[in-house]
Every structure is written in structure tokens, then in C-alpha cells.
């Protein structure tokens, strides 16, 4: 069954001259692991934010388990169903103690204190950070912080996990740490995962790879399928290391190098 469907979705930021996403028509089935690739500024993050109603489509509709993301009444249900992890671990941690941070989402949802405790402990064990529950997040490594961020989302008990370049700011060790955590989660819970990334090698274990270019879906298929089309991939600017292929060097580009 499809858990997220994009129905001819178009999106334009209020101040952008042309649409960032054009006529995206795609569905993600429950339990699947999809990797989304695309160069800087292709609209990947925008697509992620459309999945849990942080942004709502200016054209077409996005549905999460049948709920329209534009419907204010289902806003919280949508957000608790689709957990989102972002690039910069520092900017998603709200509390000064690890376990307090993980408790943030269930607290917002009005969950009973004892149930929050149980969820927090579970989530921290899932990402292998239980021993660090009383630590201060700013003293942890990047990979550890990102695992805390994942735990913070897991505490909502979401069915879908969207990760927007979760490894972009990490060293190779941190990257492996975070990817292994996601792999384990998938194996143990059968969660639907949408991994947005710059790194080809992170897509290899995915069931499906979607390549976005200039706001449109350029390629969609199994990893073997997509990666065999070397020419097309090269035309999309995807065969070079992430930090050297800025689509829009300068102010608008938000890749780590231009920043």
C-alpha cells in the first residue's frame, strides 16, 4: 500500500520566480526504502518538507496515508506519521540533556509521562545511545548527535522516516554510524524510509532510487537500473563528488562548500 503519494505536485516559494517542483507524480509504498538523489538546488529538501506538511503544495496534492497535507485538522497526525531528520544535527536538538530532547515530540503530543519514559528509553536503545541519555548533546560527536535526532523522531512512533542528507555534515565514521542505524531500524521495524542524499554509495541498499533534476523526476528505478545509465547520470551532474558540483555557485547555493 502507498503511504505517501504526490499527485501532480507543483511547488513555488512565494519569492521564487519559477516553480521549484514541477508536476511531481510519485508514490512511496509502505515498508520500502527509497533513496532520492539530485544535485544542489534540485528541490530535494523541498520535496521532503512537502511530505509532512512543513510546506504544502501550490499545485496538486500530497497525501500521507490518505490524509491531505493541506488539511489543518490532520496536521499533527501527518507530522507524527512522517518523522523528519535534517542535515545539521545541532539545529534539531532542542534540549540540553539527551533524554529530554528525545522526549520533546511525545511531550508535544500530550502522551502520558510514564509512556513517554518508555518511548524515550526504547528510542534511545534503538539507535544505540541509551548509555548517553544523561549527556549534554553539544559534547557528542556529529554521528552521535544525528542518532539522537533520529531517536527524537522515533519517539513519535512514526511509520515513515524521511532523512534529508543526514550524513552531509559528518565524517566518514559518523556517516557509517548513521547509515547502519537506519539499516537496523529498517530491518527491525520495517519502517518506510526516504533517504535524501548526495552520496551514490548510500543508495546501493535502497529498493528504489529516484533522481530529481530541476524540480522534475529524471530517473526512477532500482539502484542497478539507475546507476547503469551512466550517461544520463552524468548529464544530471551526478557522477562527481558532492562538494564540487554546485548547480548554483554563490549565494543561493547552500552546499557546505559555498556556505
Amino acid at each position: 500500500m502507498d503511504v505517501i503519494t504526490f499527485d501532480h505536485v507543483g511547488f513555488r516559494y512565494p519569492d521564487s520566480p519559477e516553480p521549484v517542483l514541477k508536476n511531481i507524480d510519485i508514490a512511496f509504498s509502505g515498508g520500502s526504502f527509497t533513496a532520492v538523489l539530485g544535485h544542489n538546488g534540485s528541490g530535494k529538501s523541498t520535496m521532503a518538507k512537502l511530505c509532512n506538511a512543513i510546506l504544502t503544495p501550490t499545485e496538486g496534492a500530497v497525501r500521507v496515508k490518505g490524509m491531505d497535507t493541506r488539511d489543518d485538522n490532520s496536521l499533527l497526525s501527518v507530522r507524527r506519521t512522517v518523522g523528519m531528520v535534517f542535515q545539521n544535527p545541532d539545529n534539531q536538538i532542542v534540549a540540553s540533556v539527551v533524554e529530554d530532547d528525545v522526549a520533546f515530540a511525545p511531550e508535544n503530543l500530550g502522551v502520558e509521562p510514564s509512556e513517554i519514559r518508555r518511548r524515550v528509553d526504547n528510542a534511545l536503545r534503538r539507535v544505540g545511545m541509551y548509555e548517553f541519555r544523561l549527556h549534554a548533546p553539544h559534547l557528542l560527536s556529529g554521528g552521535q548527535k544525528q542518532r539522537i535526532a533520529i531517536a527524537g523522531v522515533l519517539a513519535m512512533q512514526p511509520e515513515i522516516l524521511v532523512l534529508d542528507e543526514p550524513t552531509a555534515m559528518l565524517d566518514p565514521y559518523g556517516r557509517r554510524e548513521v547509515l547502519a542505524t537506519v539499516e537496523e531500524l529498517r530491518a527491525e521495524t520495517g519502517m518506510t524510509v526516504l533517504l535524501i542524499t548526495h552520496h551514490m554509495d548510500e543508495c546501493i541498499n535502497a529498493d528504489r532510487v529516484v533522481v530529481i533534476s530541476d524540480g522534475e523526476i529524471a530517473l526512477d528505478g532500482t539502484p542497478a537500473d539507475v546507476f547503469s545509465r551512466v550517461e544520463t547520470m552524468r548529464d544530471l551532474g551526478l557522477d562527481v563528488p558532492a562538494t564540487t558540483d554546485c548547480a548554483k555557485p554563490g549565494r543561493m547555493c547552500r552546499c557546505p562548500r559555498c556556505r
Binding site: 509532512n52 512543513i54 507530522r79
Partner: peptide
Amino acid sequence: ELATAMECRCYHGGEGRTRMKT
């Protein structure tokens, strides 16, 4: 970014919020 991350984690003000550590 933090504001977005908080919204993603269902933050919607103090209304109906509970606490883990009462």
C-alpha cells in the same frame, strides 16, 4: 532550522503539552 525541526516534532505551543519528568 530549529523552528522547522520543532514543527516536525509536532510542537504547537504549550496547549495540551505533557512532560516526561513531572
